[in-house]
């Protein structure tokens, strides 16, 4: 199975790239016996990231290798920016998106999601010395799908605690919509094209906090630079933030989606997802895990 990233190819064939890519164009209408092209970002560790040699690594490259073997398909993973990925799927350049895509109501209108293979919450990260480190409701679980007075009170805590602060998020990510709709007027939001840029500004103090997935933050906090950060406030899930990470397909590719769903079900049952989660996220991120 050729699982090397597009970038690796591009790097070594740079002079003849036009020809190479020109021939890729020809294969844009995939049929059942061709290889599947899987789009990912390559910049979202530990889900998927780019190694210095240009190859892709992380939870999703590993997991998709398992899934593709189970459905007996050849797969190739290519890296592209998130803001062009949905378009690439819908126009047939790629067949599947595997990029820790949260199942949000918005996205469900355009994409067909597979069975979720992970369920993670969003949480706030800030510098150790920041006043935000003492945000109330630390560790509590806020489910935005269960509206009610208790939830409203906790949102109010959050809004008061973050009032006037600068929060950095990835452009057009799931947390971007949440911040805009729930806290938009109280905080000022700064947008970043990549996670890495946002992390740099969080560490040097240009932004006061970020709202990010726990699966991304846990490994970051375990690094030497990340030791300067702490998690604060409640863990959030549901609503515009989505509920679980899943593969995204074109709505018409029902057969392919059913195949993948069977394979995902099997890997959830046999502990593969749990094992990969412990390896990459330092926690069991599978939807059934009791957390």
């Amino acid at each position: 199975m050729a699982f090397s990233g597009m970038r690796a190819i591009a790097r070594f064939l740079a002079p003849g790239l036009l020809l190479v890519l020109g021939s890729c164009q020809g294969s844009s209408a995939p049929n059942a016996h061709d290889e599947l092209v899987i789009g990912t970002e390559g910049l979202y560790p530990p889900w998927n990231f780019t190694r210095p040699d240009g190859s892709l690594a992380g939870f999703e490259p590993d997991y998709l290798r398992v899934l593709c073997a189970r459905i007996h398909r050849r797969c190739r993973m290519v890296a592209m920016d998130w803001d062009g990925m949905v378009g690439a799927l819908l126009t047939g350049k790629i067949d599947v998106i595997a990029d820790a895509v949260q199942i949000t109501p918005e996205r469900s209108g355009v994409l067909a999601f597979g069975r979720p293979y992970a369920l993670t919450t969003g949480v706030i990260a800030t510098l150790r010395g920041s006043p935000l480190a003492a945000l109330p409701d630390g560790g509590a679980r806020l489910d935005f799908d269960h509206r009610g007075p208790a939830l409203d009170a906790k949102i109010a805590h959050l809004r008061n605690g973050l009032a006037g602060k600068v929060i950095g998020v990835e452009l057009s990510g799931a947390f971007d919509t949440f911040l805009n709709q729930s806290l938009g007027s109280a905080v000022s939001i700064r947008y970043y094209r990549t996670m890495g840029e946002r992390d740099l500004d969080l560490l040097n103090g240009r932004i006061d906090a970020t709202l990010e997935d726990e699966s991304y933050l846990h490994p970051l906090l375990a690094t030497r630079d990340g030791a300067a950060l702490v998690l604060a406030g409640p863990r959030m899930i549901g609503g515009t933030m989505g509920r679980g990470e899943a593969l995204a397909f074109r709505p018409k590719d029902n057969a392919l989606r059913a195949q993948f769903n069977d394979a995902i079900g099997a890997t959830l049952a046999d502990g593969t997802v749990r094992r990969l989660g412990l390896q990459w996220f330092r926690m069991d991120a599978s939807p059934g895990a009791a957390r």
Partner: peptide, 22 residues
Amino acid sequence: AITGLAELMRVSLVAAGSTRRP
């Protein structure tokens, strides 16, 4: 670089971001 093509600017940005040594 903003299109994700791994030319010099993009590689340096990816490396700076993922190693946090800008």
